[in-house]
Design a protein around this nucleic acid. Structure first.
Lengths: 339, 339
DNA sequence: CTGAAAGCGCTTACAG
DNA sequence: CTGAAAGCGCTTACAG
């Protein structure tokens, strides 16, 4: 006949702490949050009560009351498996560290519909800033949020139908530099491996490739330009196909990191007399003497984080557009022109 | 003298939508959330109003009201720069996809104090499950959360002072297999490169190394065991030091992925007659003919995600403890025993 | 230095 | 099929 003692339903609340300490909720909050105007003795009593009850403040409640701003930043990338994206995320993470901001990461696999879904979820969670490597092309659905003051930062690919900050690569300079070097050393038949033309970077790098080649007086051979190479295996086989041609290229440029790894694996295996340059550096690239167009995804992420922090402090303004350098890093023994 | 029209302070609310549609908040909620018992015509009116006002529901409010559970899962790892951790995160991400769960990621750089800080923040945000690669050794501070029903899953390293699920490697089998192979082929002087002894995996793999060597009748030479190798450069130089000895080892085993990359870079550069096996596979490992003790971080992450989902559905129970295989993958030309 | 009341934007538990 | 009231756990805006 004794009443059942109901199991604790959830976490203890500020009210519970206040009650045990014999003060009001407001006073308990003052002590917990380290505000002034609390008697030392009162503070002690609240601390003791909080510790006894293992009080852990509920941020959702706090943030709901305080308004739009949350302590979470949203980062939307293609896929954590890809070192480019994970290093980007590492850079963002690094920038956010000291500022008590949490990082919500979602991946899209570069699918526009999935981008909509994950961004939507982040907006409903009221992230305090949104960074994304866009896969969709229309971002007018973000316009409302922008007007509400949400810092929005595009990475790797520029905003099109929305005004936003961006951190991009200077794709042209690195590619030009590489092609210039190759043509100077006599290469005329240079092949290029690129990702899907829907991707801004793929198209921009390919354009730079064509322009640089033309400028050097070496008309690009469209048969040597392979697009829609999206992963390591397909890059490996596309490279093998190029090498198996009757008129193989004398040099190959790979226009992103996954493509580089695939191409290099074929080149190492077959060991043809073919020069090579790859976009993005990678583990063992230096050791293997592979020339690369170096860029630093961590730096890109870090910049994005810095912009977000600045926006949160100073509010909105004209959109920032940062262009990060890419430059040719030549390696190799000399027995081959560039690789 | 006209009154200033105040700028919209924040997002429109369910109340705003209800007002515009001429219904109560509850009815608006029913329509928005797709509940039954709403007249089609009413539903339409609510939808129209919501679209006009660009209503975006506030998840913080919903989750606060609904109770402890949030739609966010917390993942605590060492560092996103390390492919082991980023692939682990990719696996978790993958498992969570279809379930509308968001992923909050925080990195600790393997510092116990930082782990406390980020875990604390996640708990205050009321994550619905917590996964961590622990760097602290005492996790009794999680006991309260466990009792409140929070699914807690340890990855890579086991829980010590708290009851929790775990997904670990069978470190012994892979290392034994590798050492068995090396000793069978005649190696007696085998060096090992390991991370800090504070790390469970480092110690466990080193123990397996010593045991396997002893079993094969080849007493381990402590001078050939290098501990506290924590990154690629230090692994590279530690390898160079080993090779420069008067009595260099005839084989080297690297006990994690970063150490492997560093060791391989030195081995490729110096090209000594030294066999090699590395823990964790890596890009170009197969192409370069490097033998590895293969494991799959994505799989570990995926398993953790699955356990979390199961716990969320079926509630608590006896802790699960999954041990994932590691196995020797032999590559190489045959001119060297294992590498 | 302290506290009572109201409110953030939803959902719950009812009542009709 | 619809709605009014109360409440999730905090903070705000006051009042003392």
């Amino acid at each position: 006949m004794t009443a059942e003692i109901p199991p604790r339903q959830g976490h203890t609340t500020l009210q519970d702490v206040a009650r045990l300490a014999g003060v009001s909720a407001k006073t308990a909050a003052r002590a917990i949050n380290g505000e002034s105007n609390v008697r030392a003795e009162t503070r002690e009593r609240v601390f003791t009560a909080a510790a006894a009850l293992r009080f852990r403040p509920n941020r959702l409640a706090r943030e709901l009351r305080q308004g739009a701003r949350t302590g979470a930043v949203g980062l939307v990338i293609g896929n954590l498996d890809n070192p480019f994206y994970s290093q980007l995320a590492a850079g963002v993470d690094h920038a956010l560290r000291e500022h008590d901001l949490e990082l919500i990461i979602a991946s899209t696999d570069d699918e526009p519909e999935r981008e909509r879904v994950v961004v939507q979820a982040m907006l409903e969670r009221r992230v305090t800033a949104l960074m994304l490597v866009p896969s969709a092309t229309d971002h007018s659905y973000l316009e409302g949020e922008r007007q509400l003051g949400l810092p929005i930062i595009f990475l790797d690919r520029p905003p099109v139908t929305v005004v936003a900050d961006s951190v991009l690569w200077d794709n042209h300079s690195g590619v030009r530099e590489a092609i210039h070097e190759l043509t100077t050393r006599g290469h005329r038949r240079i092949a290029a491996l690129a990702d899907s033309p829907e991707l801004f970077t793929a198209t921009e790098r390919l354009t730079a490739f064509r322009e640089a080649l033309t400028e050097a007086g070496a008309e690009p051979d469209e048969a040597l330009i392979v697009a829609r190479v999206h992963d390591v295996p397909s890059a490996a086989s596309a490279t093998a196909d190029l090498l198996a041609r009757d008129d193989p290229p004398t040099a190959i440029i790979a226009l992103n990191n996954r493509i580089s790894v695939g191409a290099v694996s074929t080149l190492l295996r077959d060991d043809p007399a073919c020069a090579f340059v790859g976009f993005d550096d990678f583990d063992l690239g230096e050791t293997l003497g592979i020339s690369v167009i170096a860029n630093d995804p961590r730096e890109m992420g870090n910049h994005a984080g810095q912009i977000a922090l600045r926006r949160l402090k100073d509010g909105t303004g004209a959109p920032e557009r940062i262009s990060l350098p890419t430059r040719l890093v030549q390696r190799g023994s000399g027995e081959r022109p560039v690789s």
